[in-house]
């Protein structure tokens, strides 16, 4: 019992730590913009710094990963390996060709194939240990990731001038139901629900709560606060988005300007986004580039056809029998041992 109460205390600290970190960031943006008027810092300098850290950080991390050797051939598969021609093999679940690997990676990246296999184990009365399928994490993760992709791409209407047509098409599709004005985006609703579920999932189940760290809660709260400030700006406390776009275009065309009269809510939103992308290369969020460099996914299951050479292998210094005999021939002869060469 003591064990679990400690776990509860740990959870509370992790949750409160992450939550207060987000609130401190929000307070920082409010103080910085509303009180001491550091608009240029929050509107230009921090965004440039964050973008630089994000891109360079990920490139350096990927190079670091690429320098690590893969000593063993370790694809983790869930299907019949290609072997004899009359045994049906699973081309996507256990690919033996590059094309198959690409297909398997696409299934993984676009539809989270391996998470679809997620199971749960529960101790029921009896005691009976019961295993079952658990698709909720898969569903929540899929809804979250697709929503954030759509939202990210929608934001290109602020980043690019003239706006590319695919952004407008995506925006119209997202606002398909034409609920209210400004039109409600489906992705806004879905990402909020998905994030609330993903937070709830960590807190609700004792086992998941036990293994959850502050670094698990922090990104969830951070992204939720970004979503909430975005939603507030669109539906409740609207800011002058023409000026917002002027600021964004200024950044991307290297003519930074900070137009007057953009609400503080925008600067909070921007500061939280900058925090997210700065945090990105140093956190679990690195699974975005990491999925491409995962040897259990990106290797073909062809170990019966192609020999995987361990890059650690060095020429080994061996002492062959012939050399041994050359060295000890006289002594061997003297003690009457048979030798191969006289």
């Amino acid at each position: 019992m003591e064990h679990w109460s400690l776990a509860k205390k740990g959870t509370l600290i992790n949750v409160l730590f992450s939550l207060s970190a987000v609130f401190i960031l929000i307070a920082g943006a409010i103080v910085g913009v509303d009180l001491i008027k550091f608009n240029f810092l929050f509107g230009v300098i921090i965004p440039y710094t964050a973008i630089t850290i994000f891109i360079l950080g990920i490139i350096l991390q990927v190079i670091k990963w690429a320098k690590s050797p893969v000593p063993f051939h370790i694809p983790t598969v869930a299907g019949q390996q290609k072997s004899l021609p009359w045994i049906k093999s699973s081309k996507l679940e256990s690919p033996s060709s590059t094309l198959g690997v690409i297909g398997r990676m696409l299934l993984e990246i676009l539809f989270f194939r391996s998470l679809f296999r997620n199971t749960k184990s529960e101790l029921k009365n009896g005691p009976r240990l019961v295993y079952g399928s658990n698709k909720y994490l898969w569903l929540g993760a899929l809804v979250f990731h697709w929503s954030i992709l759509v939202i990210f791409l929608r934001h290109f209407r602020f980043f690019m001038q003239p706006i590319p047509s695919f952004v407008l098409a995506l925006q119209n599709l997202d606002g398909f139901f034409q609920i209210g004005l400004p039109v409600l985006y489906i992705s806004d609703v879905l990402i909020t629900l998905a994030l609330l579920y993903l937070i709830f999932r960590r807190v609700a189940d004792l086992k998941i709560r036990y293994i959850s760290l502050a670094s698990d809660y922090f990104p969830l709260f951070l992204i939720l606060s970004i979503a909430v400030t975005g939603i507030l700006m669109r539906y409740f406390d609207r800011v002058d988005i023409v000026k917002v776009k002027e600021l964004a275009i200024g950044i991307f065309s290297f003519h930074p300007t900070v137009p007057d009269g953009i609400g503080v809510l925008f600067y909070i939103h921007l500061f939280l986004v900058c925090t997210l992308i700065t945090y990105f290369p140093f956190s679990k969020l690195l699974h975005m580039p990491g999925i491409f460099l995962t040897p259990t996914r990106n290797l073909a299951n062809n170990s019966r056809m192609v020999r995987h050479i361990n890059p650690w292998n060095r020429p080994v210094r061996v002492h062959t029998y012939e050399e041994y005999e050359d060295e000890f021939r006289d002594k061997m002869k003297a003690s009457g041992l048979p030798v191969e060469k006289e």
């Binding site: 290109f156 980043f159 001038q161 003239p162 991307f252 065309s253």
Partner: peptide
């Protein structure tokens, strides 16, 4: 966005 806006 940088390339796009700079080329514009």
């Amino acid at each position: 966005p940088f390339w796009y806006d700079l080329s514009g």
